[in-house]
Design a protein around this nucleic acid. Structure first.
Length: 423
RNA sequence: GUGGAUGUAGCUCAGUUGGUUAGAGUAUCUGGUUGUGGCCCAGAAGGUCAUGGGUUCAAAUCCCAUCAUCCACCCCA
């Protein structure tokens, strides 16, 4: 039997309801902040990600789904959303149409990693990008928006971590200092961290080895090497968050894995989802547009993992919905009236009443059981003696009360169903 | 890519030191009871015991290989 590819999942009942619930909240919150949805293609020219995310990153180096199409072009399934949004902005010169563009997306992403709790090969993110301004209010907004989404979901076991990486010049200066600090301690680091000492020294801060953590706790801090301008920007972001009553902690060890980040970086981590605890991450990327199109467009954004957020909801006992009530179920008492029953269903559906009926030719008893499983509020019986008087019987499933209606007073049934819904 | 764990009914799981026809709960279907439904009762259907090989009189059970899934490393959302 053909099965879904490793690290991919089919999403259907009952989980799909949670996805729809979450997506509705996401759209509401973004709309509330006046962000516009953008849908970019699911694959792009490989060079976009290689240049945008950075050749040396793990994502580009070993995780991308890259293949050659039939025309011989190298294309890649998108591993993240930001590069595509920036590409679209530049391609359509949207920075000229509007000085500030605020976009959001909800989209699948693809990375060929070993699957694990909270880590899939096709996973889904919602994210926001604000392009065209260096204003620290937008940095704060990128934290505020996912924070509000998580609050609306009812999550409580999470915290916000922020840091600033400054501009590349100060980061390079800091790396040099860090390299000096570690020069005589390299031998005590874990094997993994010794490798990073050569390749990407900042990532040693991510190490989970106990001894590495001890050594890095004593290391010089990046915030001491930022320019005055960057420090002011970071302080302003923090003040805005304080005034918005967002709890956060400064984590000077928070260095993110994508090359394009400058200044503010942040993460929202959950305490209830296992090893892959980052629910959301993002930061400012003032240099990415120049890298991709030669234009300076200061920008900031974030992305949040939908599977991880839903996992956190599950572990915190949230989103346990009761089955949706079904307003109307039509029960066929006599099979010869099936066309009448179906036409009635079309009438009620046309009136906006969600309606179901039996498609399997089952007994009245089985139909009633089915109505019950669907949590039907009303059942409409078609057939029996009353059909000879052109009437149908409506039963209220809550109290068992029944009433007959003639075919020319179906409107009354609709009203009855709607009025009971309001109670 | 590295390590560990696990694969038995649609789902969640039992299955003794190897021993007849592999079980339960739940879901599904049919019927009884009920004012035509919920609760209850009865019955039915549902399995290549992941796959392949080996040991044995005998394998779901022991051994080997393969595959898959899960968890952790790594990486990140």
């Amino acid at each position: 039997m053909i099965k879904a590819i490793k690290g991919t999942k089919d999403i259907y009942y009952p989980e799909i309801e949670k996805w729809q619930f979450l997506e509705e909240i996401v759209i509401d919150v973004f709309s509330n902040f006046n962000y516009n949805e953008i849908r970019t293609p699911i694959f792009e020219e490989t060079a976009l990600f290689a240049r945008g995310i950075g050749e040396s990153t793990d994502i580009v180096g070993k995780e991308m789904y890259t293949f050659t199409d039939r025309s011989g072009n190298s294309v890649t399934l998108k591993p993240e959303g930001t590069a595509s949004v920036v590409r679209a902005l530049l391609e359509h010169s949207l920075q000229k149409a509007k000085p500030l563009n605020k976009f959001f997306y909800i989209s699948p992403m693809f990375r060929q990693e070993r699957p694990q709790a909270g880590r899939l090969r096709q996973f889904h993110q919602f994210g926001g990008e604000a392009l065209g301004s260096n204003n620290p209010y937008l940095d704060a907004e990128m934290i505020l928006i996912p924070y509000i989404v998580m609050q609306m979901l009812g999550l409580s076991d999470f915290k916000v971590k922020i840091n600033s990486l400054g501009v590349p010049e100060s980061r390079e200066k800091y790396k040099t200092v860090l390299r000096e600090y570690l020069s005589d301690k390299v031998k005590d680091l874990s094997e993994e961290s010794r490798r990073r000492y050569e390749t990407n020294i900042l990532r040693i801060f991510d190490s989970k080895a106990e001894n590495d953590i001890l050594i890095m706790n004593e290391a010089p801090k990046i915030l001491d090497y930022l320019s005055n301008e960057d420090i002011d920007h970071f302080e302003e972001v923090r003040n805005i968050l304080d005034d918005a009553h967002i709890d956060y902690e400064i984590d000077e060890k928070l260095v993110r894995g994508l090359d394009y980040y400058t200044n503010t970086t942040f993460e929202i981590v959950s305490g209830s989802v296992g090893a892959q605890s980052a629910l959301c991450g993002g930061g400012r990327y003032n240099l990415l547009a120049r890298e991709l199109g030669g234009v300076d467009i200061p920008a900031v954004g974030f992305a949040a993992g939908i599977e991880r957020i839903l996992l956190a909801c599950k572990n915190e006992g949230l989103l346990e919905f009761d089955p949706y009530p079904l307003p109307l179920f039509i029960v066929l008492l006599d099979k010869s009236y099936d066309r009448i029953a179906y036409n009635l269903s079309l009438y009620f559906r046309g009136k906006g009443v969600e309606t179901e009926l039996d498609y399997l030719g089952r007994s009245v008893k089985a139909q009633m059981r089915e109505a019950n499983k669907n949590n039907a509020q009303f059942v409409l019986f078609v057939g029996g003696e009353e059909i000879n008087e052109s009437k149908v019987t409506l039963k209220n499933m809550a109290d068992g009360e029944e009433a007959k209606y003639s075919f020319d007073s179906l409107e009354e049934i609709v009203n009855k169903i709607y009025s009971s819904d309001e109670e």
